[in-house]
């Protein structure tokens, strides 16, 4: 279990190696002691790190944290080991999650779509649901027409296979 910390676009490894009497860390293999971690959370904080008192201001922002220290502002992101967008399960086929009727179609074959874009609206159990593209891609085929009835797991829309898909069985 370790973290990667990205400071102004540059990645560094940060590891916890000890906690008593003070927190001891490794930054890219260099050992440092945190005599006083200061207050957590947004706002002003004072910390004593590697023998020096630091005054800093921090705020959580989109994609990380902004830290201002010693009159300089930095953007920082923390990555937990193993954390990455999980794209493994993105499929090419959009299948019916339950039996129902096609209410409307929002895409045509050959159209470029992005993940999350509405492809088809269905009605089932008196409830209308929008089904979205599972990934970025090009619509290969729309297998149903407005008003069609379909069964659970029936193929509704398929996207063109990507190069990587060919080898998959």
């Amino acid at each position: 279990m370790s973290f990667q910390i990205i400071l102004d676009g540059e990645a560094h490894e940060i590891e916890i190696i000890h906690r008593r009497p003070h927190l001891k860390l490794l930054i890219d293999g260099r050992e440092h002691v945190v005599e006083d971690p200061g207050h957590p959370g947004d706002g002003l904080a004072h910390a004593v790190i590697a023998g020096q008192r630091l005054s800093l201001a921090r705020a959580q922002a989109e994609g990380g944290q902004v830290v201002r220290c010693d009159g300089r502002t930095h953007m920082v992101t923390l990555l937990v080991e193993g954390e990455e967008a999980d794209e493994g399960a993105a499929l090419s086929d959009l299948r019916a999650p339950m039996p129902g009727t096609v209410v409307s179609l929002h895409a045509q074959p050959g159209q470029d779509v992005t993940a999350g874009m509405a492809l088809i609206t269905i009605e089932s159990m008196k409830l209308q649901t929008m089904l979205a593209a599972p990934r970025d891609g090009v619509v290969a085929e729309i297998c149903v027409a407005e008003g069609d009835l379909f069964e659970k797991d029936q193929l509704l829309v398929s996207l063109q296979k990507e190069e990587g898909d060919a080898g998959d069985a």
Binding site: E81, G82, E83, D86, G88
Partner: peptide, 14 residues
């Protein structure tokens, strides 16, 4: 939970 790899599985587990 499906995991991408072992490290991901450990992260999810934690």
């Amino acid at each position: 939970y499906p995991a991408r790899d072992e490290v991901d599985a450990i992260r999810i587990g934690r």
